[in-house]
Amino acid sequence: MTETALQSHTQDIVVDEVFPHARETIWKTLTNGALMSRWIMAPTGFEPIEGNRFTFQTTPAGEWDGVIHCEVLEVRPNERFVYAWRGGHQANDGYGSRLDTVVTWTLSEVDNGTRLRLVHSGFVTPRNDTAYKNMSQGWKKVLSQIGTVTAEES
């Protein structure tokens, strides 16, 4: 094999939606642990403070215990929220394979509300192909849930 054939490539998931709410309202939905549990999963130890480590618990698989380890990397209130998203296990193929990615939420004001852009970056191919496929669909549903939760809290 050539050196090029041995190199890994990465893919990013990008989901973008406009909501009829102020940035401050969307921000609250993104950074409040109780509200997060309604649109993604209940976080453990979450605080929207740079350096804070927290976890999510999902379905275990093989050698992986289902824990997603996160660390808040950047907090710019009402503008940008970034955290590491790590999980899986080296021994797993497909679902539950080792994952070391970053989730970035960007909020921008538009005429009719707020544009919320999610970029979940760093999926290594082919190792993370299953996670990429599943989460590409999952994040679309999550953004819809964020809209629902935000509307209920407004």
Results as ranks from 00 to 15, higher is better:
29 T>K: 05
114 T>K: 13
20 P>E: 15
78 N>Y: 14
116 L>P: 00
106 T>M: 03
101 T>V: 04
58 T>Y: 01
76 R>K: 13
96 G>S: 07
73 L>A: 04
136 S>K: 03
101 T>W: 04
34 A>T: 09
100 D>A: 14
35 L>Q: 11
78 N>C: 14
23 R>C: 14
62 G>H: 01
134 N>W: 11
85 W>H: 07
33 G>R: 10
13 I>K: 00
98 R>D: 14
44 T>P: 04
82 V>P: 02
133 K>W: 04
64 W>Y: 01
23 R>F: 07
14 V>N: 05
25 T>D: 15
111 D>A: 15
85 W>Q: 01
61 A>F: 12
59 T>K: 13
87 G>D: 09
127 R>S: 07
53 R>T: 13
45 G>H: 03
28 K>Y: 09
137 Q>I: 12
63 E>S: 11
78 N>D: 15
81 F>M: 05
48 P>C: 05
98 R>V: 14
57 Q>N: 12
18 V>R: 13
26 I>T: 07
123 F>D: 03
61 A>I: 03
89 H>C: 12
74 E>F: 02
15 V>A: 03
29 T>L: 06
84 A>V: 10
108 S>P: 03
108 S>Q: 14
14 V>D: 01
102 V>A: 02
29 T>H: 05
55 T>I: 09
134 N>S: 13
130 T>A: 09
118 L>P: 03
116 L>D: 05
57 Q>W: 01
89 H>A: 15
74 E>M: 06
53 R>C: 11
112 N>H: 14
128 N>W: 02
85 W>I: 00
124 V>C: 07
133 K>V: 07
79 E>C: 05
32 N>Q: 11
72 V>K: 01
71 E>A: 14
42 A>C: 06
110 V>H: 12
43 P>M: 09
70 C>R: 06
56 F>S: 09
114 T>G: 11
34 A>R: 11
43 P>A: 08
118 L>Q: 00
114 T>Y: 08
36 M>K: 07
56 F>T: 11
15 V>Y: 05
51 G>L: 03
58 T>S: 06
127 R>G: 01
120 H>A: 02
94 G>F: 10
88 G>F: 05
74 E>G: 01
103 V>I: 01
114 T>R: 13
105 W>C: 00
39 W>G: 08
14 V>K: 13
99 L>K: 04
66 G>Q: 01
120 H>K: 05
135 M>N: 12
136 S>P: 06
53 R>N: 11
95 Y>D: 06
29 T>F: 03
117 R>V: 12
40 I>S: 12
66 G>F: 04
96 G>L: 05
49 I>D: 02
85 W>R: 02
74 E>I: 08
23 R>H: 10
117 R>K: 13
63 E>F: 04
95 Y>F: 14
101 T>A: 08
130 T>C: 02
77 P>I: 10
113 G>W: 07
67 V>Y: 08
123 F>S: 00
62 G>I: 05
29 T>Y: 05
20 P>T: 11
119 V>M: 02
92 N>Y: 09
15 V>M: 02
88 G>Q: 09
26 I>E: 10
76 R>A: 12
